[in-house]
Simulated assay, not measured.
Amino acid sequence: MKLDVSFIWTAFVELLDAIPVTLAITAVSVLCGFLIGTAVALARQFRVPVLSQAGAAYVTFIRGTPMITHLLLIYFGMPMLLDAAAEALGFGFRSASIPMIVFAFLSFSITAGAYASEVVRSGLLAVDRGQLEAAYSIGMTGPQALLRIVLPQAFAASLPNISNMLIGMLHGSSLAFTVSVVEINAKAQIVATTNWKFFEAYLAAALIYWGLTIGIERLSALAEKRFKAYSRGGVS
């Protein structure tokens, strides 16, 4: 076997078209997951009846099962539920009209939500309880204290973990090829089948993932620096 260096570059160029899909899956799943995770973390942190127990069960189940299992459960289960509901209500809607990428968005958002909840909860635990009490003492309501005092500090404390979660979801997005979504990994397989140079194609894919990961790490480092500057009362 001889390494075809020129084909690595050819594959690299062709794989660039798949980057927007990979980034879209990553961004949507992390943003939606962060909203889900924040709600779950707050419910657990403040011991909201029923919601706290439901949130704990959700986190335990999602963290205890593989990402690809979540994706396949959504891919095979959601159409069954939607078609059954549409038929019962007399709608003409059919799940076959749903774009495949929607299944990836939903599945990865649910997965990210469980991990994000632990990230947010660790950030909430890092904020001194006395700051919440001080906010109450100057007349702030609970939601005001959370939005203005607690959550910003929790977010700052969680930045390293958020960065790790973002990178994890970027890499996890490669599983979307199992439901026919053409992201970087799937594109590499398609490119490789033109002349069976799988090693070169996947090496090009690895280089792209590596570059994207470095970009996320650099942006996270800049964000951490900015937050530290503001926490000291300075500017950057």
Rank of each mutant, 00 (worst) to 15 (best):
T65H: 02
L42R: 00
L125T: 05
A229T: 14
W9F: 14
F227S: 11
G233I: 14
F108T: 04
F105W: 07
L212A: 03
L166F: 13
T213W: 05
W210E: 01
G172W: 04
L71M: 07
A54E: 00
L125H: 04
D83H: 03
G92E: 09
I190M: 13
F155L: 15
V5R: 02
A114T: 12
M100G: 11
M1Y: 07
R47N: 11
A116T: 07
I110D: 08
A84L: 12
L125F: 03
Y202Q: 13
V182A: 12
K197C: 12
V120W: 15
N164H: 03
G64K: 09
I98E: 00
T213S: 14
M169C: 03
A176R: 03
P66L: 07
N185V: 14
V40M: 08
A192C: 10
G92K: 06
A205L: 06
N164C: 08
T26C: 05
S117C: 09
Y136F: 15
A156F: 02
T69N: 01
A157D: 11
T65P: 05
V48C: 02
V40N: 05
G123P: 01
E183V: 15
R94Q: 07
V30F: 07
F177L: 15
T22P: 07
A176I: 11
A201F: 13
L31R: 01
A96Y: 00
E183Q: 08
F108C: 09
N161T: 09
F177T: 15
G64H: 09
L15T: 06
M78W: 02
L219V: 15
L15M: 12
V127S: 08
L16Q: 13
V102F: 03
L212E: 00
G64I: 08
Q153M: 12
Y75E: 10
T213G: 15
I149F: 05
S158N: 03
G142P: 04
L175A: 04
G113Q: 10
V119I: 15
S109Q: 02
V28W: 01
Q144R: 14
R63T: 06
L71E: 01
S107N: 02
M165Y: 11
M140R: 04
E87I: 00
F12L: 15
T60A: 14
F91C: 01
S52K: 05
M67T: 01
T38K: 09
P66N: 01
A114G: 12
L151N: 06
L219I: 15
D4H: 12
Y230D: 11
I68N: 00
F46S: 13
A88T: 02
A43W: 06
T60N: 10
